[in-house]
């Protein structure tokens, strides 16, 4: 079985599992949690393209998510755009912004890149709060219309679930494809040795900006979907904390692993639900998870599983 055949089987199995899950879930509460897992998976996969593949950190991805949500919200509520058109407009708009700021930002490395993306995220967050006439300020923006497709209106938990997951699965599929292509290899090459990648003819600077743009664009798409399914948005969802949460999802799942990002997103979405009893403990646990995973399991959960499987295989052979 070749690698690409295996990829197809894994993806098909995963997709089927996603499609039948709502039939097994009881109650709207859980369904809603799974809608969030879908959105977070999309975001984590998008960030993983940048962080896991190209090795470039962003602590401002919540800003792209928020920009997608707000542009969609403003265009539909104020300018009577069709929600689908608003979504396309938001994604393109954010893509252009990311492309423009990508050049100066991705010239920076390591800690400086982290700080610059963080700064960008905070500036955008402040703008969400302060441009009250546009965004409704800290108290948020409501009345964003649902998406609809012919007779189907995506306004119930069930319809939202399928809407979100179709986009999430598509994102995952395209990312898996990208990972096993010339571009994916070039990105991983940048991660491992930038100088060698350049010497081999990879236009490092341009490729970093391109993947940053794609990553921002997917995040904006997730933002639009979020706005149109929740119909209400407020700046608090798009702050620094959420950017860090996204990074945590990617790290926990495993840098460079698409299914790992799903795992990370699922764990971080479910954790606060389980921990509701322990109110507010989640933030402490994120912190601990980040430190412990980075020190002891740099490959994330998926990396850990792979190492375990390899160890078992070796023992079998021996």
């Amino acid at each position: 079985m070749t690698k690409s055949q295996r990829d197809i089987i894994i993806f098909t199995a995963f997709g089927l599992a996603v499609m039948i899950t709502p039939l097994l879930l009881r109650g709207n509460y859980l369904l809603n949690v799974f809608v969030f897992i879908g959105i977070n998976t999309m975001l984590a996969v998008a960030l993983n393209l940048l962080l896991g593949f190209a090795g470039q950190i962003s602590l401002g991805h919540a800003a792209f998510f928020g920009l997608g949500a707000y542009i969609s919200g403003i265009l539909t509520t104020r300018y009577a755009f069709d929600p689908w058109m608003a979504m396309v407009a938001a994604a393109l708009c954010v893509g252009v912004i990311a492309f423009i700021i990508g050049f100066p930002i991705l010239k920076l490395k390591g800690h400086y890149l982290a700080m610059a993306t963080l700064g960008f995220g905070i500036i955008v967050y402040i703008i969400f709060n302060e441009t009250v006439d546009w965004t409704g300020g800290p108290s948020g923006m409501s009345g964003i219309p649902n998406l609809s497709l012919g007779p189907i209106i995506f306004d119930s938990y069930m319809t939202n679930y399928y809407l979100i997951w179709v986009f999430t699965l598509l994102t995952m599929l395209l990312s898996v494809n990208l990972a096993n292509s010339r571009i994916g290899r070039a990105l991983r090459a940048i991660h491992d040795s930038e100088v060698a990648a350049r010497v081999m003819g990879v236009n490092v600077r341009l490729l970093k900006v391109q993947i940053f743009t794609v990553s921002a664009l997917i995040s904006a798409l997730a933002g639009s979907l979020y706005a149109h399914t929740m119909t209400f948005i407020a700046p608090a969802s798009f702050g620094f904390n959420f950017s860090v949460e996204l990074v945590t999802m990617v790290i926990i799942g495993g840098l460079g692993s698409i299914y790992g990002s799903f795992l990370g997103a699922a764990i971080l979405t479910l954790l606060p639900e389980f921990l509701r009893v322990f109110h507010d403990f989640d933030i402490v646990i994120y912190g601990l998870l980040l430190i412990v995973m980075t020190i002891f399991m740099p490959g994330g959960l998926i990396g850990g599983f792979e190492a375990l499987a390899a160890a078992i295989n070796r023992r079998k052979e021996a």
Binding site: S175, S181, R185, A197, M200, V202, I211, V214
Partner: peptide, 26 residues
């Protein structure tokens, strides 16, 4: 490229001999 396989390393060597972009790869 330490975390990539030997074969993948050589495949990166063919970067300049190929031209598919992000879109066609995805």
């Amino acid at each position: 490229f330490g975390q990539m396989t030997v074969l993948e390393n050589v495949m990166v060597g063919l970067h300049t001999k190929s031209k598919s972009g992000i879109f066609s790869c995805a």
